[in-house]
Write a protein that binds this DNA or RNA. Structure first.
Lengths: 263, 263
DNA sequence: ATGTCTTTGTGAACGCGTGCACAAAGATTG
DNA sequence: CAATCTTTGTGCACGCGTTCACAAAGACAT
C-alpha cells in the first residue's frame, strides 16, 4: 500500500491515533456497502470481517470517536457512516488539482471515486503546452503557468503529483507556495516540504520490491525445508565473498518516471 | 502511501523487521542515484537525508543486513547497492502479470520502472474480448480465459490486480489457484487469500481521505486558535445532536472501480 | 607508532499499536 | 420485574519500531 507520511512525528491528532485514521476509510467503505443493502445495524464482529480487521481493534478504533454502539445490538450503520464521514472531513467539498497528465494522471482524472467522497477535480495541470486545452475526463488541461492562479482561485488545499520524478520537487514547491498543505505524491522521489504540510506517497516500485522480498523468502524457506541441513558449512555466503562482481549492474534507467507512468 | 499487508502477523522474516524491508527500496533508490553520479562512499547521515529518514534508523536498518560500513568513512555505494538488491531479491527475474487493462492497467504496463528492477511484464490480461490482441505498451492483451495457462507457462508468482472491485476477488482466487503467491491490489476491496499469500494494496481513495482528515484538523486548529475559547459552551456538537439529517447521503456510486480507473 | 577525529554499530529506554479477556450495559424473554 | 443473553467498551500486557547516546572501530595526520 502506498504509505508514509513525511515528517511530523505522527501526532495523535485530537486523540485519534494515526493507525486508526488510516482504517476509518476502510470501515466507511464496508459501511457504505451495508447501507446500500439497507442493513440497519451491524456488529463489530461482522463489520470487522468485512473490513478485514480484528473486531477488538475495530471497537477500540470506534471508541476514539465516541460511544456510537449499542451493547447487545451493534452499531447503527447510517449513523456510523455519518460520524466517520464527518470525522474524516468528507462532509465538505475538497477541490483537488492533479499535476502531470500523463498516463497515470489521466487515469486519476478518470477515477470515479473522487466525486463520491467529497473530492472534486478542480483542475488538471501539465507542463506540456501541447496538452493545454485538450480535455481529459471532460476537463480541459491547463498549463503549469496557471498553477498558482488555479490554486488560489479555487481554494485548493490538496494536490496530486503525477509528474516524472525530476519535476516533482519543483511542482511540490510551487504547490506549497501557492497554499497547498496536503500532497499525494506518485512520483518516485522523496519530497521535502515545510512543517505543516502533509505528504503521502504511492510508489508501485516500492510495493513490488517488498513483495519480491517476501517471495524470495518463501522460495528460500521452501528450498531450505527440502534440503534441510544437508549443506551445513561452506558455500553459504559466496555472494558476500564475491562482494560485487558486476552482477548487480543490470539496473536500467528508471527513477525519473512516476510510480506508474509511461517511460 | 499505499500500504498494508493483509493477514500474517508481520513475521520478522529472517530477522529483518518488516519496517526495515519497507525502507530498503528507498535506500536503494537513493544509492542508485549516487552510483550514477559515481559517488564512491556515503555516510549514514548523507544517505539518510537523501532517503528522508533518521540516520540512526538507517544504521540500524543496515545492521540487520550485516556490517557493510566502514567506521570513520561510511558505506561503499556500489557494494551496498548490490547487497540491498540481493536482499530484496532483485538480482533475479520476476515475471509479473497485470490483470485488468483499463486506464490504470495501461499506465502500469507502460511503467518504465518495471524492467529496471528485475520485474518483467509477462502478460496483460483483460476480461473484455474486444481488448484481446490489442497491443498495450507493445504487449498484446490476452483474454482472461488464458490466465491459468499464462501463469503456469511463465512461472509467474506476482500478480497485479487493476480490475473493478467487483471482479477483484474472483481474479484473485484464480491467480492464487494458478500459483501466484504475491498480489498487488489496486481494486478498492479487501481481498481474502489463503495463508502463504501476500497481498499489498494501493488505494487512492484511502490516501485522499487520510489527507482530508489532517487537512480538516489543520483548519480546525487554525479556527480554534483564532476564536480561542470565545464560544465555550453550546453550538459545539450540533452535528452530533442532529445525528443524521440526510446530509451524509451525498455518496455517489463508487467502490466498484479500482483505486484509479475510469468510472 | 601514537593520538585525534570521524562515523559506525548497538544497548537501552520509550511510545505506539495490537489483541486478550472481561466487566458493564442494554436488549430480550418469561 | 428478574433473569439471561448478546455485544460493546476498555484495562492490561506484550511486542515492534524509533530514537538517543555512546562505546568501539577504523582512517588519517603527525
Amino acid at each position: 500500500m502506498a504509505t508514509g507520511r513525511t515528517h511530523r512525528p505522527a501526532t495523535r491528532s485530537r486523540g485519534i491515533p494515526e493507525a486508526t485514521v488510516a482504517r476509518l476509510p476502510l470501515y466507511l467503505r464496508a459501511l457504505t456497502a451495508l447501507s446500500e443493502r439497507s442493513v440497519p445495524t451491524v456488529s463489530s464482529e461482522e463489520l470487522a470481517a468485512a473490513a478485514g480487521v480484528n473486531s477488538a481493534k475495530l471497537r477500540k478504533d470506534f471508541s476514539y470517536l465516541g460511544s456510537y454502539g449499542t451493547r447487545g445490538v451493534g452499531y447503527d450503520v447510517e449513523y456510523l457512516v455519518y460520524q466517520i464521514s464527518r470525522e474524516l472531513g468528507l462532509t465538505q467539498d475538497w477541490p483537488v488539482v492533479i499535476v502531470g497528465i500523463g498516463n497515470l494522471g489521466a487515469a486519476l482524472a478518470n477515477y470515479g471515486g473522487f466525486a463520491s467522497r467529497g473530492f472534486r477535480v478542480a483542475a488538471l495541470i501539465d507542463a506540456d503546452p501541447a496538452m493545454a486545452g485538450k480535455p481529459v475526463a471532460g476537463i480541459p488541461v491547463q498549463h503549469t503557468d496557471e498553477l498558482e492562479a488555479i490554486i488560489r482561485d479555487n481554494g485548493v488545499s490538496i494536490g496530486v503529483i503525477a509528474t516524472p520524478a525530476g519535476a516533482a520537487q519543483q511542482v511540490c514547491d510551487r504547490l506549497v507556495a501557492a497554499g497547498v498543505t496536503s500532497i499525494l505524491n506518485f512520483a518516485p522521489t522523496v519530497l521535502t516540504v515545510p512543517d505543516g504540510v502533509d505528504v503521502r506517497k504511492v510508489d508501485l516500485s516500492i510495493e513490488l520490491q517488498i513483495l519480491a522480498f517476501h517471495e524470495q523468502r518463501k522460495a528460500g524457506e521452501e528450498a531450505a525445508a527440502e534440503v534441510t541441513a544437508a549443506q551445513a558449512a561452506g558455500s553459504t555466503n559466496t555472494a558476500v565473498a564475491a562482494k560485487r562482481e558486476g552482477s548487480a549492474t543490470d539496473q536500467g534507467p528508471d527513477g525519473d518516471v512516476p510510480a506508474v507512468m509511461p517511460a
